[in-house]
Structure formats: C-alpha cells, structure tokens
Write a protein that binds this DNA or RNA. Structure first.
Ligand SMILES: NC(=O)c1ccc[n+]([C@@H]2O[C@H](COP(=O)([O-])OP(=O)(O)OC[C@H]3O[C@@H](n4cnc5c(N)ncnc54)[C@H](O)[C@@H]3O)[C@@H](O)[C@H]2O)c1
Ligand SMILES: NC(=O)c1ccc[n+]([C@@H]2O[C@H](COP(=O)([O-])OP(=O)(O)OC[C@H]3O[C@@H](n4cnc5c(N)ncnc54)[C@H](O)[C@@H]3O)[C@@H](O)[C@H]2O)c1
Lengths: 232, 232
DNA sequence: GATCGGTTGTGCACGCGTTCACAAAGCCGT
DNA sequence: ACGGCTTTGTGAACGCGTGCACAACCGATC
C-alpha cells in the first residue's frame, strides 16, 4: 500500500540516540571511513556495542555479518527514519537574548531546520533584523506557518508568555513545540512538546557536586560508582 | 558524625524532577499557598501522584498524612538536597552568539548560579562587555576558578574546540560541565558532563512529526497513543 | 475518645530498556 | 569446498522506574 510499510514503533530511548549516531557517522564519512563495526560506533558514542546493534536493528537489517555497517547507507537509513529526507521549516517566538542567538545560529539550517521566521510582540523589536532574519509581528504567524508549511515552533519568550505562545503556535497549525522557557506548557493531544530548561541542567549538576562534597567530607571509602561521564 | 547523615542514593529520574517540583512550589508559595497535597503537585507537574510521593519520600518523611506537605518546608528540603543552600559560581567558555545570550540572561543568577566569568580565545572578543560581564582571556581561567571556587563550567564554543575547552576546565579544577556544543566530550572520572544538543531535540521532534505523517497517510485507525504531551 | 474522611508512605507487580551471550551468517585464505 | 575468523542480530536475564493499591496515620468532628 504505502511506499514503505510502517515499521514497529522505535523506543524513545533509541530515537534519542539515533541523532547522535547520525552525527558521528557524518564525521566518519568526512574522514573517509566507509565501513564501521558496531564496536567502533559504540566507542565513538561512548555506549555499549550491543545497544548500538539493537538500536540499529529497529531500522532493519542493514549490517553485514563479519564486516560491519556501510556508513553511507546507514546515514541514509537513519536520516529517512528521522524524517530528515527533507527540510523542516521552523518558527521562533520571542526575539530576545535567546531568540536572537538561535536565529543567528547557522547550525540549524545546516542540519535541515531552516528558520522560516522569528516573531515578537514588542513593536520596538518588530522589523529589526537579527541574524539575517527580519523580526515579524505575531499577526503574521498563521500566514507564515501556512505558506511555508511549518510544523515546528520554538518558544523563546519569558516564562509568563510561554503558554500564550504555545497556544498561538497550535492555533496556527504547528504540531511540534520546543520550549526553552522554564515552565510547564500544555498542548492538545497530537501536539508534541519538549521543554529544555537550562537551569534544571545546572541543578542536576550541582546535585552531583553536592554529593561529591558530602562523600568527601565523610571519609569512609565509597565503593559505588563515583559519577557517570562521557555523556553525549 | 557528619551534620546530616548521607542518605541513600536518589534515582537519576527523580533528581531530574526535583528542580521542576521546586519551581512549581516556589510559584505556589508566591501565590500564597502554604500547604499542598501530592495530588495537587502532581497536577501542576503533569505527572502521577504516586510518583510525586515516591520522589519526595527519598528526601525523608516530610509530609503529614491526611493533610499534605508544607510548601515552605518542602522547598527548603529540596533546595538542601540539590545543594542550593548556597550559590554556585559558573564560568562560560566561548563568547559567541550563545555565550553572550547566556551571560546576559538574568535567570541563572536569580536561581543561584551567578556568572563568575566568560572567556574567549579570540583577542577581538576579549575585553568587550557582554551582558554586563567583561570577556576575559583564557589564561585567566584557572585563576578565576580558584579565586571564586567555581565548580561548574559551560561550554559554548564551536564543536571543534569543545574538547579543548573541557580539558582546560578540568585542568582549572572544574568538576561539572554543561556542554552546548553538538559533540561528545569526555572527562576523567569524577567529573560530570551533561550535553544539551538543541539539534538533537529538533530531530526527536521531527521523528514524531514524520511518524504522524506516515500514520495519516495509511488510513487505518491507530489505536495506540497519539503522542505524549504536557512535558515539563 | 471513638469515628470518619483524607493523605501519606511503601510493598508489589508490571513494563521498558540495558546487557550478556550465542547462534547464524558473511568473508577470506587455502 | 571448507574451516577459521569476525561481526551481526536477537533471545533471554536482569535491573530500574512507574503506577497501583492499601495499610498506617493524622486531624477534625461529634
Ligand atoms: N537568554 C538565555 O540565555 C536563556 C537561557 C535559558 C533559558 N532562557 C529562557 O528563554 C526565554 C527567553 O529568554 P531571553 O533571555 O531571550 O528573554 P528576553 O526577555 O531577552 O526576550 C524575550 C522576548 O520575548 C518577547 N515576547 C514576550 N511575550 C511574547 C509573546 N507572547 N509572543 C512572542 N514574543 C513575546 C519579548 O518582547 C522579548 O523580546 C526565557 O523564558 C528564559 O527563561 C534564556
Ligand atoms: N547560537 C545558538 O543559538 C546555538 C544553538 C545550539 C547550539 N549552539 C552551539 O553552541 C556553540 C556556540 O555557538 P555560537 O553560535 O555561540 O558560536 P560562535 O561562533 O558565535 O561563538 C563561539 C565562540 O567561541 C570562541 N572560541 C573558539 N574556540 C575557543 C576555545 N578553545 N576556548 C574558548 N572560546 C573559544 C570563539 O572565539 C567564539 O567567540 C556551538 O558549538 C554551537 O553548535 C549554538
């Protein structure tokens, strides 16, 4: 029926690792490596080789026993699975510190997420140019989303305005939201929301820092793990 | 022996949620709420009530049956556990787009992570002022880290320089690193590294977007979950 | 001080993700 | 054609996190 049949669902944990493999495989390709074993890739990614194989097996059987994986083909397959065989236009809401940094960042366009527009409520911000993109008024949002078939929106507004921003995005037809404001944002079913709260990351770090300090002050030897690292 | 005995280890998943509870409890406190049930907090956080209770139980038995938790006291306990009873000075490496946005952002100082310094290799950047902080040369790093007892470092350099930045941080005595460059960064045991790769977040979103598109094209009804939301 | 509605704290079962271990399978040299 | 070496793909065991269900407990009310 469909061009390629719908595969079994891929576990969230695997989906989160595929972009990392993709990144590493791209680097290897540039370095002239055309073939790679799961062991090699595991070392690069800092994870277990069996995990790499299981992750890749969700895509299909694209390896060759005794040999490994052809890098080029694997890149193609991962890209296809992640939906990277075409670009995804992105809109940003909030042209403050963070919004400007994001819109000026070439890495997104480079990786297939061109900025289709950046929007702000503040009339003083509107029509200024940040990172080569003109800031537009919020009234233009729905039109841009429709015209350039945007499905991903980024929230870079103050926390108090985050839910409003999300509502506007949803109303305009956006179905995926990346939220940088440190607040819970809710959206109707069928809309995916991911929140990245940098202060939370800091707090996780300081928790471990705190633990280390406590462990050091009580001079008993601690046989357990001292702390994870090599996180990708 | 020690002022307060070392508790059992808190699961990573719980540690990652504590900051969110803390945030919400702070909001409630401001709103004049002095007491809260696990059910209430669960609703605010968008999670299961049993999970909230289990999470909080790792801190100790600070709730009152039939009543709930005293917000003020709970805030105090979570802050203590996360090591937020004092500030944690932070250094930033790389004063580009992102580094400038981070140093100009008041939210970190506000939440107990004041910026002790921002550093760059580029002589043109050094001595310029971004977000009220003067950019310093990398040679000053070790001195600042020692003088202001910095234990957290943020990497905002290009990917190619990220490992070098991490090495410098470690050599200067930093033991926690938050890495925004899209690369694997390794550090010796005893140093915690967390990487936040925004492009990875995008790719996870577009995977779900892709899936939705496939599910819609094959017109069979999909009885499974349509997609998680209400993510904090 | 006994009863009752309400909420915590946790034992337990379940499900997901990780890891081990190995059979199946491909490659190469003889 | 075959045997030895290498690496994949996956069944199975394990461990961790989640959610349910309920006993223990608190405060209020009569
Ligand atoms: N700047 C950082 O480095 C940083 C770091 C971590 C988190 N954050 C978070 O990112 C968000 C933005 O931070 P910032 O430093 O850029 O803030 P900012 O105040 O510099 O910018 C916010 C912008 O959003 C605009 N805005 C307000 N309401 C809006 C709405 N309803 N729709 C569209 N635009 C609206 C404002 O006019 C302003 O230009 C905040 O929630 C902040 O907590 C920022
Ligand atoms: N700008 C964004 O919005 C954004 C978003 C996501 C990820 N990132 C990532 O964050 C990092 C920084 O991005 P950016 O846009 O600020 O880049 P940028 O090029 O604007 O800034 C990088 C800065 O780092 C400095 N630098 C180079 N090597 C250094 C070293 N060894 N030590 C200290 N400083 C050094 C450079 O002089 C430059 O000022 C990149 O890895 C990028 O991929 C940025």
């Amino acid at each position: 029926m469909s061009p390629h049949r719908t595969r079994r669902r891929i576990p969230d944990a695997t989906v989160a690792r595929l972009p990392i493999y993709l990144q590493l495989l791209g680097d290897q390709l540039e370095a002239g490596v055309s073939n790679l074993s799961s062991e090699d890739l595991a070392t690069l990614a800092g994870v277990n080789a069996a995990k790499v194989r299981k992750d890749l097996s969700y895509l299909g059987s694209y390896g060759t026993r005794g040999v490994g994986y052809e890098v080029q083909y694997l890149v193609y397959q991962i890209r296809r699975e992640l939906g990277l065989d075409h670009d995804w236009n992105v809109v940003i809401l909030g042209a403050g510190n963070l919004g400007q940094a994001l819109s000026g960042y070439g890495g997104f366009t480079e990786r297939g997420y061109p900025i289709a527009g950046i929007f702000d409520v503040d009339p003083d911000k509107v029509d200024t140019v940040v990172g080569g993109v003109r800031v537009r008024p919020l009234d233009d949002l729905a039109q841009v989303v429709a015209a350039r078939s945007v499905s991903i929106g980024v929230i870079a507004t103050p926390p108090a305005a985050a839910q409003d921003a999300a509502d506007r995005l949803v109303r305009s037809g956006v179905t995926s939201i990346l939220n940088f404001a440190p607040t819970l944002v809710t959206a109707p079913l069928g809309v995916t929301v991911r929140t990245v709260d940098m202060a939370v990351e800091m707090q996780i770090l300081s928790y471990h820092e705190q633990r280390r300090a406590l462990a050091a002050s009580s001079l008993r030897s601690v046989p357990g793990d001292a702390g994870r690292n090599q996180t990708a």
